[in-house]
Amino acid sequence: MIVYSLCFVLFMVGLYGVVTRRNMIKIVIGLAIMEISIFMFLVLIGYIQGAEAPIITGHETAVQFVDPLPQAMVLTAIVIGLATNAMLLAIAIRIYKNYGTFDIRKVNELKG
C-alpha cells in the first residue's frame, strides 16, 4: 500500500507546484507531474504478481496476463497529455511575446 501513498505524495507535489509557482513554465511542469502520478497509479492497480505482459506469444506457460484495460486507457491518456502540454506551452509563449514575462500575476496586473 505504501506505493499508492507515494503516488499520492507525487500528486500533491505537482498540485503544490501548480498552486504556488508564478512562472508559467513551472505551472506546466507541475501539471505534467500530476499527470505522471495518475498514470503510475492506474498501471499499479492493474498489476498482478507473477503475471505476463498482455501479449500472446504462443508458448507461455502460466496463462495469466496483467490487466490490459488500464494500460489501454493510460496509453491514450499519455498522448492526450502530450497534446495538452503542447497547447499550454504555445499559449505561454504567446503570452511571453505579448507581455515580455512568464510571471502569471504580473500579466494579471497588466490587463484587467
Partner: peptide
Amino acid sequence: LKAPDLAIVQ
C-alpha cells in the same frame, strides 16, 4: 510493471 507498450510510448 509488465507494460512494454506504455514504456515505448512514454
